[in-house]
Nucleic acid binder design. Structure first.
Length: 464
RNA sequence: GGAGAGCUGGCCGAGUGGUCGAAGGCGCUUGAUUCGAAAUCAAGAGUGCCCGCAAGGGUACCAAGGGUUCGAAUCCCUUGCUCUCCUCCA
C-alpha cells in the first residue's frame, strides 16, 4: 500500500469495501450498479447533505433490478433471433421450412419489440432518478448543517486600515463615473450594469491579467469557447436537468423541427469541461488544465431581493475559469493545486481574503469537496465569495463520458474533473474599489495591473 | 436564405437486404529476426451493457432517432453535422 499520501486519504473508507483497486476512488453517482450494490453506504453519505437527500435513492434499486431482468430476457430473445436468421439465410425462400420459421420469428420479433419498449421506459425512469441525485460528499469534507458550519481554512493578508469610513463600490463607482447602474437597467433591466472609462478598462485588464498568469505561470492552455451551449453539454456538467431555471434559454425564431434550444452558459465550466465529452484521453496527457474567459449568464431565479444593489449579483458577469482533467489518484492534490492558482490571483492583486471549505450541507450538487475563496469587502464589512474551487470526482466525467486510458490497451477509466473561478472578474473589481479606496474617493490600481491599465495608477473622477 | 454532395472502426477507405463488428491500407500492441534500430514475418488489438468467482459467453453499436423486413451498414422517413456553389453577414 505504498500510495502517495493524497491517495491514501481518498481510499479511506471506500477501501474497506474490498475490490480496492477499482472502488476506492469511485464517487459513484449515476453508477446504478454501484448505488444498488452499496445502497446503505450511499444512503449514509447522501444523508450528510441534509435531511431528505437520501430519499432520492428510493426506487433506484428496484428499478435497477428490473432493468437487469429485462436485459437478460431481451438478450436471450435476440440471440434466438440471430441464430434462426442465420439459418434462414441459407434456406430456399419459397420452401415450406423457410415460411414456417419466418412466421415463428415474427412472433419473436413482436416479443422483442415489447420488451424493448418496457426496457426503455425503465431505463428512462432510472436515469431520471440518478440524474437528480447529487454527488456524495468526500469523506474529508467537513460535516455540517448549514453554511454557518463552513470552517475557515486559512486567511491571507489583513483588512486594510482605512482612516475613514469605507464607502461601498456602488458609491465609489458612481462618483468616479465608472459604474453606471441606471443606464444598465435602462437598457437591459435590473442586475445589468454598464462599465465605463477606467471601469471598463479595469474589467478588461483583470481578464488579461488573470489569463496571463494562469497560462504563463500555472501551465493552463487558454481557451476561448462558445457561450451558447446545447442541453447535452449542460447535462454533462449537471446544470441540467435539475437547474434549468438558473439558465437563460434561447429559442430560435425559426419554424420547423430543426429549431434547437440553446442555453447561455452560466459559467465557462460548461463548454470547457465538455471539450472532452465522449472522449478517451491518453493517460500520459493528464493532468490537462484549461483556462478560459467567458461572459457568464445566470437568471438568478430564487434570489429575488438578494444583493440587488451593486455588481455582486448580475445576470451577466465576466469570469476567468480554471478546469482540470486529472487521474483519480492525483485528484485531491490537484484540487489543492487548482485552489492555490485561484488564490495566487488575489495575492498578486494584494487583496485580503480567506479560504473556507464548504461543509457537507453547503456543497454544490455535483461536488464532493469545495473550497471557496472569500475576499474582504470593507464597504460591506463582510467576506464575499469570489471563487469556488470544486472536485467533482467522476460525477461529471460519467455524465459527459470523459475517460482516459492509463496505457495503450488498458481499460478506459473515468477521469476526475475539477474547476474553480480564477476569478470572478466583477467581484474582483468590487474588491479593488473597496480595498484600494482612498480618503478622497479615488482608487489606487494594484501594481500588477498598472501595465494592463496603460500606466494608469489611480482612478479619479472623470472631468466632465 | 437557395441548390447540391456526403457522414463506415484511431485514421484512410471498401461494402446497396442474409455467416458484416464489418475487406484492404496506414497507425498501434506483442512476439520472431537484430548488438540495437529500420525493414521483414507472425499474432493481436474497439466501446457499452448483461450473465459469470473466473475462464468465458451473450447482446447492442457503421452520425442520431424512428420505420419496412424473418433479417438492415445496406431500403424509407425525420433530425444533426460536414463539404461545395450562390446569397447574406461581423
Amino acid at each position: 500500500m505504498a500510495r502517495p499520501a493524497s491517495e491514501r486519504v481518498i481510499a479511506g473508507r471506500d477501501s474497506t469495501i474490498g475490490r480496492v483497486s477499482r472502488v476506492w476512488y469511485t464517487a459513484a453517482m449515476l453508477d446504478a450498479r454501484y448505488v444498488t450494490d452499496h445502497l446503505d453506504e450511499v444512503r449514509a453519505s447522501l444523508a450528510r447533505r441534509g435531511p431528505g437527500a437520501a430519499h432520492l435513492l428510493d426506487d433506484v434499486a428496484p428499478l435497477a433490478v428490473s432493468r437487469r431482468e429485462l436485459i437478460v430476457a431481451l438478450d436471450a430473445l435476440r440471440a434466438q433471433k440471430n441464430e434462426v436468421s442465420a439459418s434462414l439465410a441459407k434456406l430456399d425462400k419459397k420452401g415450406e421450412e423457410f415460411l414456417r420459421a419466418r412466421d415463428a420469428m415474427k412472433v419473436v420479433g413482436e416479443q422483442t419489440k415489447s420488451l424493448e419498449v418496457r426496457l426503455a421506459a425503465v431505463e428512462a425512469e432510472l436515469e431520471d432518478k440518478l440524474l437528480n441525485i447529487p454527488n456524495l460528499p468526500h469523506e474529508t469534507a467537513p460535516d455540517g448543517t448549514s453554511e454557518a458550519d463552513n470552517p475557515v481554512v486559512r486567511v491571507w493578508g489583513e483588512k486594510p486600515e482605512l482612516a475613514f469610513a469605507p464607502r461601498d463600490h456602488v458609491a465609489l463607482g458612481e462618483a468616479l463615473g465608472i459604474l453606471d447602474f441606471e443606464r444598465g437597467a435602462k437598457i437591459s433591466g435590473t442586475r445589468f450594469t454598464v462599465l465605463r472609462a477606467h471601469g471598463a478598462r479595469l474589467e478588461r485588464a483583470l481578464m488579461s491579467f488573470m489569463l496571463d498568469v494562469h497560462s504563463n505561470e500555472h501551465g493552463y492552455e487558454e481557451i476561448w469557447p462558445p457561450v451558447l451551449i446545447k442541453d447535452s453539454a449542460a447535462r454533462g456538467t449537471s446544470q441540467l436537468p435539475k437547474f434549468a431555471k438558473d439558465m437563460f434559454k434561447l429559442e430560435r425564431f425559426e419554424e420547423g423541427e430543426g429549431a434547437r434550444t440553446l442555453y447561455l452558459a452560466p459559467t465557462a465550466e460548461v463548454p470547457v469541461t465538455n471539450l472532452h465529452a465522449d472522449e478517451i484521453l491518453e493517460g500520459a496527457a493528464l493532468p490537462i488544465g484549461y483556462t478560459a474567459y467567458t461572459a457568464c449568464f445566470r437568471s438568478e431565479a430564487g434570489s429575488h431581493g438578494r444583493d440587488t444593489r451593486g455588481l455582486i449579483r448580475q445576470h451577466q458577469f465576466d469570469k476567468v475559469e480554471l478546469v482540470r482533467f486529472v487521474t483519480p489518484e492525483t485528484a485531491m492534490a490537484e484540487h489543492a493545486k487548482l485552489t492555490s492558482h485561484a488564490e495566487a490571483i488575489l495575492e498578486k492583486l494584494g487583496l485580503h481574503y480567506r479560504t473556507i471549505e464548504l461543509c457537507s450541507a453547503d456543497l454544490g450538487f455535483a461536488s464532493r469537496k469545495t473550497f471557496d475563496l472569500e475576499v474582504w469587502l470593507p464597504g460591506q464589512d463582510a467576506y464575499r465569495e469570489i471563487s469556488s474551487c470544486s472536485w467533482f470526482g467522476d460525477f461529471q466525467a460519467r455524465r459527459a463520458k470523459i475517460r482516459f486510458r492509463r496505457e495503450a490497451g488498458a481499460k478506459p477509466e473515468l477521469v476526475h474533473t475539477l474547476n474553480g473561478s480564477g476569478l470572478a472578474i466583477g467581484r474582483t473589481l468590487v474588491a479593488i474599489l473597496e480595498q484600494y479606496q482612498q480618503a478622497d474617493g479615488t482608487v489606487r490600481i494594484p501594481e500588477v495591473l498598472v501595465p494592463y491599465m496603460g500606466g494608469v495608477r489611480v482612478i479619479t473622477p472623470k472631468a466632465r
